[in-house]
């Protein structure tokens, strides 16, 4: 039986492989090639070499959006993971109504980013106008914290579920042993629970990191990069370069930014995976 499966494995792989090739590998390679071209429509692109990549670094809006994205990622990773872990601890204590709370916290994750963006835009603008501050379109600080509040609200529930699963897997034996040894609750958390949920932490940090870097629809709907590109995320900057600019010279530039962006996200997340993996312990 096993032999037969092995023999026919190419046939089983074929449909998915084809779909993957057509839907991902070919466009990806074409996109890579287009980054070295000048074009208006993708069908007649003229090869111009690395000129697009040189221009990226003289584009101040790109550097600005890079800075914004990094600052945003740092704050949102910390806030989301700390709160999600805290909630997970609370909701694994067999309190009354745990299931209701888990559902409630998870629910924002089911709403699409664009819708969330507009809801929060109305909400934040209303608060800002009540306290007499400039509205979102003129207020980059409010835009920054608003975006963090939005993604926290959206992602905390999801990360919480992952942490709950991790915490439930911490073996009772270990906790009991810690208790017998006289470890305080605080020490048990730091020395037993945290090392044991390290795999969950790896996953959650990875997800929040890539989500923050790839953030697009939330920021498009919430601020659209206003004021003056100050709250523009990298993905939004690429989109604007490609679509809001008229002229052949911008398309290749946008494509080059996208390629650089892709490499950047891969490198950063690999480094993060390596760093958190090394902290994981064998059970």
């Amino acid at each position: 039986m096993e032999k037969a499966i092995k023999r026919y494995s190419p046939i089983f792989v074929l449909p998915t492989l084809l779909a993957f090739t057509i839907g991902f590998i070919i466009p990806f390679l074409e996109g890579l090639y287009l980054a070295f071209c000048q074009f208006t429509t993708v069908r007649d692109a003229a090869f111009i070499g690395v000129g697009n990549f040189k221009r990226i670094f003289s584009d101040t809006t790109f550097l600005q959006s890079f800075k914004f994205t990094v600052l945003f990622a740092l704050a949102s990773i910390i806030i989301i993971n700390v709160i999600a872990f805290g909630l997970a601890l609370l909701l694994t204590r067999n309190l009354k109504g745990t299931n209701i709370f888990r559902t409630v916290f998870f629910m924002p994750n089911l709403i699409g980013g664009i819708v969330l963006g507009y809801i929060w835009q109305i909400l934040i603008n209303c608060v800002l106008s009540l306290v007499g501050e400039p509205l979102l379109a003129l207020n980059s600080t409010a835009g920054y914290w608003g975006l963090i509040a939005l993604v926290s609200w959206q992602q905390i529930g999801y990360m919480m579920i992952i942490y709950i699963a991790g915490l439930q897997n911490v073996s009772e034996d270990l906790l009991e042993a810690a208790q017998i040894d006289g470890a305080s609750a605080w020490k048990t958390l730091w020395r037993v629970k945290l090392p044991m949920v390290m795999p969950s932490i790896t996953i959650c940090v990875f997800l929040t990191l890539t989500n923050s870097f790839k953030l697009f629809d939330q920021s498009l709907a919430l601020t659209g990069g206003d004021p003056n590109h100050l709250t523009e995320t990298l993905a939004l900057n690429i989109y604007y370069t490609f679509y809001s600019r008229a002229g052949a010279q911008w398309k290749g530039l946008g494509q080059a930014k996208a390629v650089l962006f892709c490499v950047l996200v891969i490198v950063i997340s690999l480094l993060q995976l390596k760093a958190t993996r090394s902290k994981e312990v064998q059970q």
Partner: peptide, 28 residues
């Protein structure tokens, strides 16, 4: 086995046919 093979084949073919016409616009 033959049946399975034919079915897989048919699946693969329909996939090919579905994607064939959009081959040159794969970037969109």
């Amino acid at each position: 086995k033959l049946l399975a093979l034919t079915l897989t084949g048919a699946l693969a073919m329909s996939l090919l046919a579905g994607c064939g016409s959009s081959g040159d616009t794969a970037a969109t």
